[in-house]
Design a protein around this nucleic acid. Sequence first.
RNA 1: GCCGCGGUGGCGGAAUUGGUAUACGCGCUAGUCUUAGGAACUAGUUCCUUAACGGGAUUGGGAGUUCGAGUCUCCCCCGCGGCACCA
Length: 949
Amino acid sequence: MEKYNPQKVEAKWQEVWEKTKIYQTDLASDKPKFYNLIMFPYPSGDYLHMGHAYSDMGADVYGRYKALNGFNIFMPIGYDAFGLPAENFAISKGIHPKKSTAENISHAEKQLKTWGCQFDFSREVTTSEPNYYKWTQWLFLQLYKQGLAYQKESPVNWCPKCMTVLANEQVINGLCERCDTEVVQKNMKQWFFKITDYADRLIKDLDKVDWPESSVTKQRNWIGRSEGVEMDMQIADSKEKFSVFTTRIDTVYGMTYVVLAPEHPLVDKITTDKQKKEVEKYKIQAQKQTEIERQSLEKDKTGVFTGSYAINPFNGEKVPIWIADYVLFGYGTGAVMAVPAHDERDYEFAKKYNLPIVQSIAPVVWGLGNAKFREGGKTIVRPQVAVIVKHWAKDEYICLDWEKFGWKSFVIGGIDEGEKSEETAVREMREETGYQNVKSIRKIGGTIVNKYYAAHKGRNTIAPQDAYLIELEDGEQAKTEKEHTKFHKFEWVPKKNVQKYLTLENHIVAWEETEEEHAFTGYGELVNSKEFDGLTSEEAKKKMAEWLEKKKSGKTQVNYRLHDWSIGRQRYWGAPIPIVYCPKCGVVSVPEKDLPVELPEKIKDFRPKGTGKGPLASVKEFVEATCPKCGGKAERETDTMDTFVCSSFYYMRYPSVGNDKEMMEPNVTKKWLPVDMYVGGAEHVTMHLLYARFIAKSLHDARLINFDEPFLKMRHQGMILGPDGKKMSKSKGNVVIPDAVIREHGADTFRTYILFMGRFEDGGPWDPKGIVGIKRFLEKAWGLYDKEIVDNEPSVEETRILNKTIKKVGEDIDALRFNTAISQLMVFVNFLSSQKTQNKKTLEILSIMLAPFAPHMAEELWEKLSGKDSISLEVWPKYDKNLIKDETVTVAVQINGKVREQLIINIEAEENDVLELAKASEKVKKYVEGKEIKKVIYVKGKLLSLVVS
RNA sequence: GCCGCGGUGGCGGAAUUGGUAUACGCGCUAGUCUUAGGAACUAGUUCCUUAACGGGAUUGGGAGUUCGAGUCUCCCCCGCGGCACCA
């Protein structure tokens, strides 16, 4: 056989595959189906890049493995061709997007055909073709029928450069996903899909899918479900009211003001004349800001008092109403109750504007050895103080060491009947330390509820604790009474050691508060909350919600971060929205039989205008329409649809490509959907994947399909970085194009190498040097078929390694651990190449195992070896687990945890035999002689651990 | 700030339930072949120490549990990804 020439071999087999149509799936076959989907590429003008290759090749190896295991694989391919990037590319080149898109697609297809993937090119879709976007429009109509497509006037994201509206998902850190321009908010009438109706199911059904945990979490966070209550608030001396949304109704007694978003419609009505000027100024200022400025965290909180007050329904107290841009109009009710004591943002705001801070939740600390309350014990309440005493000259603090009890604390004491806690603090300090003169005293944080079971008194104790920081004036010290000091001694502890010194949790909490004051945002027990005092936050949430509901001034409410999907685009290159506006009948949908509403090819200028209307508005022939209802003159909608609408159902269309009557052929759809495995980038989790799930659910509810989760199993490929370890980009000059690698080394080498580099789900830097290792490996494998091939019984050793390899390679591919599968194949090939003659059966199996990674080469070797038809018609070999076991194993002997000897033993050897062998070993003797073996642990076939002393 | 993931030789990376850390590949070193080689092949290669046998150290740092920890627990440091005033 001649030397391995990948270019020649690959050209040959690609031709054969094309001619025999071996990868055109027979969708009607009886074999079990396996829908192996990759995310279809977006041909925007650049080459398909490393990321495409990596993803597709990984998916293909997996698919080929499944095929060899008896599945009928369907791996379709298509092009996501509408949308901003394709259009922007065309604009930059000054050509019509239809033309540039066609060129890009033909280029991409050429590339794809060299990759050695089992793509079924016979069922290609191109989303910008009328025979496809007819179904995009059809989909719109289905949603419209269900009331899931609607128009509303609302603030939307507007990209000034792309001159179009964007969905929330397409705004990344306040920048346009495509051109990195700062997005501004505009009030516009727009088409939306009501994805929020499905928010709960989109969360709940994540339990049904086998997806990476991180992606499930990302979607969950993106949807952002939060449970709380909506509470009505009456405006003082007015009939007006509004509601606030809060997840922490338990903190309601700590409310000291409320905040409305500047856009809140009530603002104008309630602003007093005196405040009008300032409020107006603030509103204008807020409106001018871009999202980035508004969301900037460095920015100080700002706000303006409206002059009006609202009434807290729980205690009837009046609280001032402010407006501030830290409250978002688009979330909840656009109004919040502010509880500075228990919310960081409110705290910051209150500090800045000198608004009162009232504690209503006290943290609960189980003190004194964490002893929980005991049943039947008497429970008493004993308020106390903790006193942090600071030295008059040094940065040191008095700490007490209660030797008998093992506590270390600050000065501590009970508040006597009728005594103020501040007085207690001073009194206790004097009694216990003798120091007399207070320079300053300051309360630290809020009340902390300390609970413990006092064993010596046999009772449960609740001890609300106030903490004070006392700074001493000087060192004047009186003699202390013994009764106060008999259990502890005191010492001065430098500041940096205090934290470590303390053992009582409640004192540690108090100490932390001296450093930096902040809101306590955790759960605890209610204080200052009238009849709700003493409840836990959890209990209070329930009781308070019930209280509100009974009073009919509130209800429990679930809110989502997710917004409805804004789908209209004021751009040319997209599927027209199939709607006409009739002066008589109003908004009328185009009947299904009239689809597609074709995108006019002839247009003077397809560039966006930025007027809020798309370029289609300038095409008279397009705009002018007849009303499908009354036959009168009407006007077409001129917005086109977001590309993500096109890509939300393409996988449903593939099996029915060719059918012009139905989007989905019922039988084929029933058989082939949902998708069994979906491989693609993680960057689509909160866009495409979320939209596709929503669309599937809506069609399911319309009884058009019988599944409601489109992608049962999904995995992401990692990112291939440039050789410098940075993300590939033209500006950095570190882009490696897959075609160049394929031309030089061949697709088989490329596939195997890129999958060998690291974990598929991790990706990593492209190292051009390493590829020779794979080349050597494939050449070495190729060379085996040149050796003397005999048809005999393979050796025991060969059988063992063969069976091991079958097991590991199969299991690894199944789990997408391609790198370790390849490494095992290397071990196997290295073993075989050390042998003079090769066993025919072994080489047959090797070819099959190589086939997923190096399909062209495997075909060639298979043809030479067996003379049979394509290797992809073969069956993945079975292994015999009995043949994997080694007869002898090396057992490590550990002495006190260190490996001192290795023994070769029979795998069946028992502990005693191994121990005897070990004792006989010189090396072991050295460590054991004259000592006592205290413990022996034997892990069968692995190691013997001896503990000696 | 919050959520998620990760940190292992010179490099990419292996390591079922805790059980011989560094598989496989690159690179490097020596050798073979060669007019030559940035080709191929063979052998070696975690680090320190030793002529060698051997000994010691080692999975970001520190503590802990265990006969035994890359793997489990706690604290800290660093990197990556996502979210980011969501009430």
